[in-house]
Design a protein around this nucleic acid. Structure first.
Length: 267
DNA sequence: ATCGGTACCTGCACGC
DNA sequence: TGCGTGCAGGTACCGA
């Protein structure tokens, strides 16, 4: 379940890729490829050296240099995507990057992930909002004011801030004491500040824990995260609130499950 | 223009 | 045991 903390953990575990050269690339699933036929993409990648690996929201961007040009490999893990250093290809291995030393596999059972190559800085990243751990409070607060939508939906909107997903939106709202269906522009008093601080605290703590391993999430070396043990509301429907003991409830907001404490998060 | 609903996939847990 | 249902970290696209 790659959200910002998981993708950050994966990206850090890919640091060993810097300096490696892509010998060849093989694509077994066309669905995950953006804008391209697999042969052309493989030809574009072969021989290029990896100069850097960076996270943008939930995207991973590798800067590649070839004999005559630079390029970018953009990857998104979707819901179930994994990048694995080493190991053998399995049933859901959709891309195999053979390196001058080692191999990088892209696994994704649900095929919601994506891989694309571009010569220019990818437009998909340019459209994203700011990093939630970098945006100043004033900018965050004035963006909140601009939107009439539900605050949960706004947190999930990658143009608002990039990288927050369903888990961390619910956890941030719980810590801030804000109902997921509250209207963003109507948050008053200390609430925008509390949401800002809660969002940052949850993400920072989750990164430190290596992310949340809910089903089978692991980083590129196969290591699990342990932030799932710190979830206070996410997928805890019916369990007692850690603050007040009230049963955690689940509602749908924009067709996504939202978990909250009806006592601590009043409308 | 902005919003909410739906589609895209596979796998798993559950009730019958 | 098996089958149907609902649910799951994601984004993109459609209409109102």
């Amino acid at each position: 379940m790659p959200e910002l903390p998981e993708v950050e953990t994966v990206t850090r575990s890919l640091a060993t890729l810097v300096g490696r050269r892509i010998v060849s690339a093989e694509f077994r699933c066309l669905r995950i490829l953006r804008g391209g036929d697999p042969d052309r993409m493989a030809a574009c990648l072969a021989g290029r050296q990896i100069m850097g690996v960076k996270r943008y929201g939930k995207f991973i961007l590798a800067a590649l240099v070839g004999p005559e040009s630079v390029g970018f490999l953009l990857m998104h893990l979707g819901m179930t995507g994994k990048l694995l250093l080493g190991g053998g290809a399995g049933k859901h291995t959709h891309a195999i990057f053979t390196l001058d030393r080692g191999v990088l596999l892209f696994d994704d059972p649900r095929q919601f992930g994506s891989i694309e190559f571009s010569e220019d800085f990818p437009a998909r990243i340019a459209k994203l909002g700011p990093e939630p751990l970098e945006i100043p409070f004033d900018a965050f607060a004035s963006e909140l004011k601009r939107h009439k939508t539900r605050v949960k939906a706004l947190l999930l909107d990658q143009r608002f801030v990039r990288g927050v997903g369903n888990i961390y939106a619910d956890e941030a709202l719980f810590r801030a004491g804000i109902h997921p269906m509250a209207i963003a522009c109507r948050l008053r008093g200390e609430r925008p500040r509390r949401l800002y601080e809660s969002m940052r605290a949850v993400l920072t703590e989750a990164i430190a824990a290596g992310g949340s391993s809910i089903s089978d999430y692991v980083d590129a070396q196969g290591r699990k995260g342990f932030f799932q043990f710190s979830h206070r509301v996410y997928q805890r429907t019916g369990e007692p609130c850690v603050n007040c003991g009230t049963a955690i409830r689940r509602v749908l907001v924009t067709q996504r499950s939202s978990h909250f404490c009806p006592q601590c998060q009043r409308r």
